[in-house]
Design a protein around this nucleic acid. Structure first.
Lengths: 235, 235
DNA sequence: ATGGGCTAATTGTGATCACAAATGGGCGGC
DNA sequence: GCCGCCCATTTGTGATCACAATTAGCCCAT
């Protein structure tokens, strides 16, 4: 079975779910969040096609909210739409990967620097714990969990910057690299990844803005450089 | 009359417009482009409400494509949606203005620097002509034309960078500042604006990357600093 | 005259349907 | 044996309708 059907064939649905419901919100946003998470965590292969009726049926909604969610993700670059309207996860060219890496290298050090003066002890401790978890996933070879943890680490740090527009832009870039990243780690096996997170945390604790910027920049560059090389290899 | 009605009340419309039609493309994209242009050029006041049925009727389409376009613009930050779903042009807080200015100051010098090695003579000449036009609009006091020309100038330069993702991000920021910018120039009367465009063009012709980055950064900061001060004044 | 509550109109949400284009598979011809 | 064409199916697009919630206007009471 898929999920959420049972007795919802008629136009008279029951949106009784008011507050504090987990999968709350309008249907189009539920679909958006579900697809976004799927893309961000690399659960979708580059070039993979999705159909409106497919996602609609899968999430138990009609085509209308499914279309809105897909369009929204396409506007963010997370999905590509062909001339005929077919929707698929984008396949990044090496040039595009370089561009996205440059954007991350511009935005994320700035976000980290803005978070620096606001980083209290508890935040640093939390980041240390997250980094330890990431190392676990790395050792156990769980690529999906590694990618997820990595994004969570960066996001947790950048949230302290109190720069929502800048963070939104960074997340847009993550969204675009999502499918390719998973494919990368699945192929490479993520053998050697330097621990720039640790350097970033140390700089954060020391109040060293320049060091923090460098660590974040290196961390960002590392992942996407690997992706770029891979792209050239298979081409 | 509005436009485009005549004989289109039935579900059997005639999309005969194939290629090389000006207002081509799907209906939802026509609506998107129309609204986007309106926002970008400051033809919409901050806080102004728009309704789905309103834009649908205005552009001669049904609610479905109107909703997609509005949602897409909301996702880009060009429109704000309240908790109840009402759509309006966003009102920027001073902190948000500062943040958007910082993003522009990060992205646009990079775009200019990437365009620099590709900037041939013809492009520089074109930019000179555009800057002259901008000066005209400035003298004649045409705020809308000034804003439009300014964006066109930057966009023409950045197109040479061959960095579509970065340009898209920059345009997203322009979109967010659109409504507030027009309101600003309408109030201020745009008296003193330094000619950083000329400095940028000179640096471009001389191949001086550092100078170009500085000129663009100054040009970007100038406009949004004024907006920020104004926001504080009226608050 | 003003504030509160009630009603009617407005508005977003989502489902369904009809249509056209594109896609993919299968058949026949070279 | 392989390529091209034709048809059935899939798929995106857009219009329409029903519903619920919010909004705004109005009347009445104080």
């Amino acid at each position: 079975m898929t999920l959420a059907d049972a007795t919802t064939p008629s136009p008279a649905v029951r949106p009784v779910r008011a507050l504090l419901d987990e999968g709350a919100g309008p249907a189009h946003e539920r679909v958006y969040k579900a697809l976004r998470r799927r893309i961000l965590h690399g659960e979708m292969a580059p070039g993979e096609h999705v159909t409106l009726r497919g996602v609609a049926g899968e999430l138990g909604v009609s085509m209308t909210p499914a279309r809105e969610a897909v369009r929204r993700l396409a506007a963010e670059g997370a999905l590509a739409i062909s001339a005929s309207g077919r929707v698929s996860a984008p396949i990044l060219s090496p040039a595009r990967v370089e561009e996205l890496a440059s954007i991350r290298a511009l935005l994320e050090p700035e976000l980290a620097a803005r978070a620096l003066p606001r980083a209290h002890f508890s935040l640093i401790e939390r980041l240390k714990r997250m980094d330890a978890e990431i190392d676990q996933h790395l050792k156990s070879g769980d690529a999906a969990a590694y990618v997820r943890g990595n994004l969570e680490f960066h996001r947790t740090l950048y949230l302290r910057a109190h720069a929502p527009a800048m963070l939104a832009l960074a997340e847009t870039v993550w969204l675009q690299t999502g499918p390719s990243m998973r494919a990368l780690y699945a192929r490479i096996g993520m053998g050697r990844v330097a621990d720039y997170h640790r350097k970033a945390i140390a700089a954060l604790a020391a109040g060293d803005e320049a060091g923090l910027r460098l660590a974040i920049r290196a961390d960002v560059r590392q992942g996407l450089t690997m992706l770029s090389n891979e792209g050239l290899d298979q081409a």
